[in-house]
Design a binder for these strands. Structure first.
Lengths: 146, 146
DNA sequence: CCTCCATCGTTGACAACCTCCACGATACCG
DNA sequence: CGGTATCGTGGAGGTTGTCAACGATGGAGG
């Protein structure tokens, strides 16, 4: 069957955006599956690895644009897999810091390489300069409705 | 709380893509709610309205990148709302054409205007030329992994 | 000190969505 | 005519998005 394109949909940035997003997420998930991860968990792991003293679950939710209740489950799964730990910070006993284990850092590295490689399938046609422009535009979309 | 940005995530096109996509979809859904629609249903309605003699459910699934079983439910809901009808085509008795009703065309127009307006919130910072570039890039992402 | 209010993590519920598999009906090809 | 493919449909299972509530803790003001 020939898949044609309907003009009003091909012009709709919202449609194109969610379709492209799904494409990339699917490719990334396929790559991360080898490490027992999904994109959500991987994002949390990256966040934990990238901050010096760990990151509170509240901050994870804010940065990723998720509901705090989702972060609980994601951290549960990562902790069950031995990739992160919940640590109590110095001052505030309400918050729990998400801190990567040694194994967590290792997996994050390996998974990151595979994910980056997998994303080349959908993004392969975009040059370096184009990716920079795309990054810039997507960032501004986010800031526009913060 | 200050929402900082972590470099490896701010650089990740997949992350930015899904975040921006969610933003736009949420805004669109909010606008479409006044018409009793969600983006999925609206997309199907647009497809039905834009094709001359109706469109088969299989084609809807292919164009939107959905599973055929999802299309069944979406058409069910649209039909229950009186916006589309399932019609038998001339030649092939397996396929069912999705054809808009008069009311369906009316709602599509009104909902389309509201949706376009709502999308200006997240996309407002992008100029006309930028949107063209974005459209082009997103389209190529799709064709890259077809 | 103590009370009021905000914040954090957590749990639960519910709708939406995606993915896959299986089936009956119909079409097409050899 | 018989085997194979396609279409719509139904169902299962897992993931996600959204919202409301709760207990525990922190902080500000009287």
């Amino acid at each position: 069957m020939e898949v044609f394109m309907v003009q009003p949909l091909a012009d709709d940035l919202g449609f194109l955006l969610s379709r492209a997003s799904g494409q990339v997420v699917r490719a990334t998930n396929a790559a991360l599956a080898a490490h027992g991860l999904r994109v959500r968990q991987y994002s949390v792991l990256v966040l934990a690895c990238e901050t010096a003293d760990g990151i509170s679950q509240r901050e994870v939710a804010a940065v990723l644009g998720l509901d705090p209740s989702q972060v609980v489950l994601l951290v549960d799964e990562l902790a069950a897999a031995g990739l992160v730990e919940r640590q109590a910070p110095e001052g505030d006993r309400r918050t729990r810091l998400v801190v990567p284990t040694r194994e967590g850092r290792r997996v994050r590295e390996a998974a990151g390489r595979d994910a980056d490689a997998a994303v080349e399938a959908p993004l392969g046609l975009l040059g370096r300069a184009e990716r920079d422009r795309l990054r810039d535009m997507l960032t501004r979309i986010w800031t526009a409705s913060g």
